[in-house]
Amino acid sequence: MDLDIVLQLADSSVRLATPLLLACLAGLYSERSGVFDIGLEGKMLIAAFFAAATAAVTGSAWVGLAAGLAASLVFSMLHAVASITFRGNQLISGVAINFLAVGMTALLGHTWFRQGGQTPQLVGDARFHAIELPGAARLADVPVIGPVYAEVISGHSILVYIAFLAVPLTWWVLYRTRFGLRLRAVGENPAAVDTAGISVPLLRYQALVITGILCGIAGAYLSTSMNAGFVREMTAGKGFIALAALIFAKWRPWPALFATLLFGLLEAIGIRFQNVELGGIGTIPVQFMQALPYILTVVILAGFVGKAIPPRAGGEPYVKEE
C-alpha cells in the first residue's frame, strides 16, 4: 500500500469516525449520569432529518444545525421524562425513541418533500463545507508531514473539528469542574449526591441536555456535511456502534476518541476495499465488509478486549431507600 492509500484511508476514517465520536461522547454524559441511552441512534436520525430538511428550505446549514439540535433535544428530554421523572425502563424508552425517529422522519419526509422519505439534495450554503486550515497548501509539499496535514488534518467541515475538540473539553469538564464531579458521582451513587444536598433529577436532566446537543451535532453532520441530504434510516446502527465504542473506552473521553477512530477506520477499509481478492481463497463478499463494524461491535461487547465496569448506578431509576 502506498502513502496515498494510507492517507485516503486516514482521511475517510476521520470523516466516518466523527458521528460515532459525537454519539459516543453523548452517550458518555448520559451513562456517566446513570441513564442508559440506547436511543442515541434515534436522536441522531431525527436530528439528521430536521437539519437537512431545514437546510433545504432555508438554504442555511447553520439554521439546519439549530433545527437538528432542537429535534434531538426534544427526543432527549422525552427520554429524560420517561426514565428520570417517571422512572420508566430506560431500555424500552430508548427503543421507543429509535422507532419514533424512524417513523417520524419517513412520515414527515413523505409529507414535506414527496421524495420517498429523502430530503432534496443540499447545495451551496445549505451544506457544511470543508475548511482549509492555514498553511495546508503551502505545507503540502513537505514530505510526510505536509500531506498528512493537508489531507488528513485539514480539509474537514467545522463539525469535524467541533467533534474532536469535544474530547479534551469533555475531559476537562469531567475531571476539573464541579459539574463533572457531580456527574461522575451521580452515576456511581445517586444517594451520595442526594444526601449531599444536590438534586439527582436536575443533574441527570442536565446530562441528557448535553447528550441531546451532541447527538444533534452528530445527526446534522451526517445529513448536511458528510452527505448532501437525508436518506431514510441513514444512521444505520451508528448509535449502537457508538455505545459499543463507549464500553470499549470504559466511559472515558480520550479512549472514546481512539475507539471511534478504530470503527471509522474499519468502515473506511470496508468502503475502500469492496470485494477484496484474497489470493487463492476467493473474494471477500461486499456484504461481509459492510457487516464488519457490527461484528466488531459484538466482539468488543464479548469482552475479548478487556473487561469494562459500567457506572454502578446505570440503568436504574433513582428511588430513595431506607
Binding site: 420517561a82 427503543v95 425513541i97 422507532f99
Partner: peptide, 11 residues
Amino acid sequence: QALVILFTGAL
C-alpha cells in the same frame, strides 16, 4: 408502534 412502546413501556 413507537408511541405504543413509549406509553405502555417507558411512560
